[in-house]
């Protein structure tokens, strides 16, 4: 039984890692899409922005699909209750991802300005909506939601839009905008890179403030710790690290150190997510009303056999995926610049 207990906790952590990979990677491609309208001077700038993430956004998004699939396999009850409970929120994300996904491919098919403007708008909205929803949803997960017995959520979309969740959603959207602007400032050149750097500073100041408010609010609201939880100091420390890393990333990009800034903004995303997962532990869907209505890791995990199969598959194939994704980034490592700027 002890190995069983360890395996389900391992899978909780692994799903956290999949989300971390997803938000770190798609975080910057969402961010690029969000800031692109504000930093582009003309159609060519827009195309450079989109091309900066063109070869990689699709692979980044698969991290989400894998996190979803892994949750389905390792925690069927969590998967079933979470997605049927957060129904409209997730539906909005899916619609947004559809529109965004095709916008990449369809935009360039016609040269008409109206056509391109439409898809630019689709690309922007399709990135902003999930960027807000993910932050709001994770904030809801740490503060807990009103659950019926067995972890069934009936609160609808409005029940998820608590003010603190809204702050969390804005924090994630601005944090991604920061992360994406830093990426653009490294990946492009000339005026575009300079405007991206300035956008990063604006987004960074907002992200730092919003993240600080969200972390403090959740900590002060103080949902009582459940048995087996980690000390609340750990999530708070991780949250604080996230705020510091966002502030640090902003300062670094302001002084022109793009590479370090990117690592720092990435760290802010990872620390924020770490705070969420460490605060949830050992629950996966915490109830804010009656503690016994929460879904726990042990109560929603798959049986041993499934977890063993999943562990073996993950151990063999994850390094392979990381290797070829990493190689893709290496292949497309150079800056995208206009010919006049020296290509």
């Amino acid at each position: 039984m002890s190995s069983f207990a360890a395996l389900d906790t391992t899978w909780f952590a692994l799903i956290g890692l999949l989300w971390a990979g997803y938000l770190f990677l798609e975080g910057f491609d969402f961010g690029v899409s969000i800031v692109a309208p504000f930093v582009s001077a003309d159609d060519q700038d827009r195309r450079i922005c989109i091309n900066a993430i063109g070869p990689v956004w699709d692979g980044n998004e698969v991290w989400l699909v894998t996190a979803g699939g892994a949750t389905f396999a390792a925690f069927p009850l969590w998967y079933g209750r979470l997605f049927s409970g957060f129904y409209l929120a997730l539906f909005l994300v899916l619609l947004a991802l559809i529109v965004r996904g095709v916008s990449f491919e369809f935009r360039g098919k016609l040269t008409s300005a109206a056509w391109r403007r439409t898809w630019d708008w689709a690309n922007f909205a399709g990135s902003l909506v999930p960027a807000v929803v993910w932050g709001a949803a994770f904030t809801d997960l740490v503060r807990g939601v009103v659950l019926a017995p067995g972890g069934v959520y009936f609160g609808g979309l409005l029940g998820l839009l608590h003010p603190v969740a809204l702050v969390g959603g804005l924090a994630s959207a601005t944090l991604f905008a920061l992360h994406g602007s830093v990426f653009l400032s490294m990946k492009t050149g000339g005026g575009l890179a300079e405007r991206a750097r300035k956008a990063a500073v604006v987004a960074g100041v907002a992200a730092t403030a919003l993240l600080a408010v969200a972390v403090a609010w959740v900590a002060l609201a103080g949902r009582p710790s459940v048995p087996g939880a980690v000390s609340p100091v750990l999530p708070l420390a991780l949250g604080a690290l996230g705020v510091l890393a966002a502030a640090g990333g902003t300062a670094l990009v302001a002084t022109g150190r793009g590479g370090l800034a990117f690592l720092s903004t990435g760290l802010a995303i990872l620390a924020g997510l770490g705070a969420v997962f460490s605060r949830m532990f050992p629950e996966v869907l915490p109830a804010s009303n009656v503690a016994s209505h929460s879904l726990t890791i042990a109560g929603s995990a798959s049986q041993h056999e499934t977890l063993v199969v999943m562990t073996v598959v993950a151990a063999v194939f994850t390094p392979l995926v990381l290797a070829y994704q990493g190689w893709t980034y290496w292949v497309f490592r150079q800056r995208l610049v206009r010919a006049t700027a020296g290509a």
């Binding site: 698969v62 699909v65 894998t66 979803g68 699939g69 892994a70 949750t71 389905f72 396999a73 390792a74 925690f75 069927p76 009850l77 998967y79 079933g80 209750r81 798959s302 049986q303 056999e305 499934t306 199969v309 999943m310 598959v313 993950a314 194939f317 994850t318 995926v321």
Partner: peptide
């Protein structure tokens, strides 16, 4: 919830 133990694994493996 009923089938996740079995049905989820191929889906997750498909993604990976």
């Amino acid at each position: 919830i009923f089938v996740g133990n079995i049905f989820g694994a191929p889906l997750a493996i498909e993604a990976l």
